[in-house]
Write a protein that binds this DNA or RNA. Structure first.
Lengths: 251, 251
DNA sequence: CGCCATCTTGATTGATATCAAATCCGGTGG
DNA sequence: CCACCGGATTTGATATCAATCAAGATGGCG
């Protein structure tokens, strides 16, 4: 599966002078960069997992095509992410570039050996696997119980946080994916995504300043966005109420 | 997170004469068994992850309570499963016994050290983490794109497969969880779960033989169940159509 | 025997999908 | 430079599946 870099990626990204085996980023740094054009595939669902990849630049979508032809996007990959670790013999999804993308690859075997040998790498891999697992959990909660508006707000909020974690003080986020991608990721239709964004603009929560760039969204009211996302920041807040039973509401 | 044992668990379970560190099961085997009554909690979301657990007997639900009070069940734990591995400092969910349950625990630290030291344990942990990731992926697809009937059928089918994988030739599966649990796991309401099961009985796909035991469901037509589950067996079948674009349907 | 939790069934509503048609925008070629 | 084309997006009208609201039915258990 893919591994989100979170805060890590940025620190690591700056620190190229690492000894190769000291970090996952270092491990990939000597590999040649490969370029993917928009729409180009990195690998397909069902392919043998011969390589592990580091995304150097750009964004990819990872998805499965289900029997009726629909597409389910299970995640996006951003610069600093690593993909292909928590998989056995076959990829469980396809990966496709959304923007011009640069990646580095490592043979599966070489990667596994390096990680097995290094006391520095193992915790880093572990940490990323945990982050990835946590992200999938959150997505599971989103899909199983959130409304269209909550899903959109959660999605925007995650982007805003990624931005802030990356040290960027901007409140304009870039959404490199299309509305269709967002729909397939959030378990909605493209029409519902569009309508919901329109509604959020109407509420003054977000704004699309430059009409030429629907892929740039200004977050006008981050606090309200968090409210509408419908959970105390993707985390439990009023927890540990010692199992407040018998109060289970709708759904 | 929790780790499904799949086929592994059964082989391992028989082989108690292993040297302790040879298998995960062996690693736990010297720990005293602890008993949980129905409804009793093993740990709570937000607690520090001080222990890793092996489920020896029984079934647990793992879940999160979201801000509006609803409960999202993110998985179930069965005999042979291990829980608490792919987590950092805090549990991301609570775990609660659905049936009388027996578990063994290991201090987090002891577990990590044992795994770090053993060339036999590491692949086993890796394998289980991969299985878990695959399971969450499948759940994600289920929640993002399946109808109520497809969800129920998928759920029943998984139980049937677990049974078959366990060497049991029966086609009557036990569902130790309540209808509410199933609803919270499948992203439905209890009414929809109930209605959908009634409909499946009407179609002759399944049957509840003993009225006294709604928790035992006989699968009358496994083939049809798989059809209704709405995917070529939780796996892609007509894959690799070289990206049959521009045919994306509803949702 | 009768309470109580669990489950089932029925009637209605509502959010979102579906179907359909504009609108917008970048790119292309005249 | 401007008209046209096609993909992406938005907007509108309607349909539908599952949620909600509301009773019953069932079975375990004291």
């Amino acid at each position: 599966m893919f591994l989100s870099s979170y805060a890590n990626s940025h620190q690591v990204a700056k620190a190229t002078p690492f000894k190769e085996a000291d970090s996952l980023h270092g491990l990939f740094s000597r590999q040649p960069a490969e370029h993917l054009a928009i729409g180009q595939s990195l690998f397909f669902e069902g392919d043998e997992t011969r390589h592990v990849f580091e995304v150097v630049e750009g964004t990819l979508r990872i998805f499965r095509i289900i029997s009726d032809g629909r597409r389910v996007i299970t995640g996006f990959l951003y610069a600093g992410d690593i993909v292909g670790v928590s998989l056995k013999e076959r990829y469980l999804y396809s990966a496709e570039a959304i923007t011009p993308t640069k990646v580095r690859r490592l043979a599966r075997r070489a990667f596994d050996d390096a990680v097995a040998d290094s006391d520095e790498l193992r915790p880093e891999v572990f940490s990323r696997v945990c982050d990835e697992m946590a992200a999938v959990q959150d997505q599971l909660v989103l899909l199983s119980s959130k409304t269209a508006e909550e899903r959109l707000c959660t999605f925007l909020l995650r982007h805003l946080r990624r931005m802030i974690a990356g040290g960027n003080r901007e409140t304009t986020i870039e959404l490199p994916m299309t509305r269709q991608d967002m729909a397939d990721y959030l378990g909605l239709t493209i029409e519902t995504v569009s309508r919901t964004i329109t509604k959020l603009i109407g509420k003054g929560v977000v704004n699309v300043t430059n009409p030429a760039a629907r892929h740039f969204i200004k977050i006008e009211k981050p606090g309200m966005l968090a409210q509408l996302a419908g959970d105390g920041g993707e985390c439990p807040e009023a927890l540990h109420d010692l199992m407040a039973q018998g109060d289970r509401r709708r759904h």
